[in-house]
Amino acid sequence: MKKIAFYGKGGIGKSTTASNVSAALSLIGKRVCQIGCDPKNDSTRLLLGHICKETVLDQIRTKDASEIKKEDIIHTGFNGITCVEAGGPEPGVGCAGRGIIVALQLLDRLHALPESDLILYDVLGDVVCGGFAMPIREGYAEEIYVVSSGELMSLYAANNIAKGIRRFASRGKVRLAGIIGNSRKVPGEKELLLEFAEMLHTKLVAFVPRDKIVNLAENNRQTVLQYAPDSAQADVYRKLAETILTNENLTIPTPVSFDDLEKLVSRYGTEN
């Protein structure tokens, strides 16, 4: 079983990418489980066709842990994909990172996850606290993909995630599996990301073009694989899914300084 995670700056398109990859994998017969680790609990929206209304933390808030059953927190999405949302605290109350820890520990205790060919953790933003680092630190995910554009702060988040992977690689199997470029149409973006990936001692495994078909699909609460299966964008996600299945180029990253990031961005004429 492959255990992977998508990380990246908030709003960079992790959940969209994750859901389309999950859909593509399911359509070639793979058993897929996607676990959203974001308090907005919107990772699986495109797979379920709606925002998940029963997150792990919702159950913990309303029931004694001994009363929670697998079916309370496990949901079935598009083409049989297993969907789980960790959930989060009420706005302004509690720690979202801590919520991830509690949610994943409960899933373990209940042995709640069915047999899968691939488990995909969709994790909020940067590695800024122990909770969001948990999939890396505790070995839930072994292959980490970082979703990034060519914008400076997106690269900054990606570089910080690489620091977290490097820190925990020495005591476990976690490795950087590659950069997924999610285009924002900044100048020289693909070339910039290719160079950035090389600086981190990894590869640019995909460059996802910006296409309005993605927004149209999301407005219809569907992945591109459902909404426009014959589109060029759907083929991009299919190719990325195949790459993830066969990728063996797993590395311990070599993060760079912020000064180096700024120099890289300035050479390509991009602006944050």
Results as ranks from 00 to 15, higher is better:
68 I>S: 13
68 I>M: 12
69 K>E: 11
73 I>C: 09
73 I>P: 07
73 I>G: 07
74 I>Y: 09
74 I>K: 07
74 I>D: 13
75 H>F: 14
76 T>N: 13
76 T>R: 12
77 G>K: 00
77 G>A: 08
79 N>Y: 14
80 G>M: 06
80 G>S: 07
82 T>K: 14
83 C>A: 09
84 V>S: 01
84 V>C: 01
85 E>R: 07
85 E>Y: 11
85 E>A: 05
88 G>Q: 08
89 P>I: 01
89 P>N: 03
90 E>L: 04
90 E>I: 00
94 G>E: 05
94 G>M: 07
95 C>F: 03
97 G>I: 11
98 R>W: 06
99 G>W: 01
100 I>S: 08
102 V>L: 12
102 V>T: 15
103 A>F: 05
103 A>Y: 06
103 A>W: 10
104 L>V: 01
106 L>W: 13
108 D>S: 10
108 D>K: 14
111 H>N: 15
112 A>Q: 04
112 A>H: 04
113 L>E: 13
114 P>L: 06
115 E>K: 05
117 D>F: 07
117 D>E: 06
117 D>K: 02
118 L>I: 15
119 I>T: 14
119 I>H: 06
120 L>R: 03
122 D>K: 12
122 D>C: 04
123 V>L: 09
123 V>C: 03
123 V>E: 05
124 L>W: 01
124 L>G: 00
130 G>I: 10
132 F>S: 02
133 A>Q: 04
135 P>Y: 03
137 R>D: 02
138 E>R: 13
139 G>A: 05
140 Y>S: 08
141 A>I: 07
142 E>D: 09
145 Y>V: 09
147 V>K: 03
147 V>P: 00
149 S>C: 11
149 S>N: 08
149 S>T: 14
149 S>H: 04
150 G>K: 06
151 E>G: 01
151 E>C: 01
152 L>Y: 15
152 L>M: 12
152 L>F: 15
152 L>K: 03
153 M>P: 07
155 L>I: 08
155 L>E: 08
156 Y>N: 06
156 Y>S: 03
157 A>C: 14
157 A>R: 02
161 I>E: 10
162 A>K: 11
164 G>Y: 15
164 G>C: 06
164 G>D: 10
168 F>Q: 03
169 A>C: 12
169 A>D: 04
170 S>P: 00
170 S>F: 12
171 R>N: 02
171 R>Q: 10
173 K>A: 15
173 K>N: 15
174 V>F: 14
175 R>Y: 04
178 G>Y: 01
178 G>L: 02
179 I>W: 02
179 I>Y: 04
181 G>Q: 11
183 S>N: 10
183 S>G: 11
183 S>Q: 12
184 R>F: 03
184 R>N: 08
186 V>R: 00
188 G>E: 01
188 G>C: 05
190 K>L: 01
190 K>Y: 03
190 K>M: 13
190 K>V: 04
190 K>R: 15
191 E>M: 11
192 L>T: 02
192 L>W: 07
193 L>M: 04
194 L>H: 00
194 L>I: 13
195 E>R: 13
196 F>L: 11
197 A>E: 04
199 M>I: 05
199 M>R: 13
200 L>S: 00
201 H>Y: 11
203 K>V: 00
204 L>W: 12
206 A>S: 15
206 A>E: 09
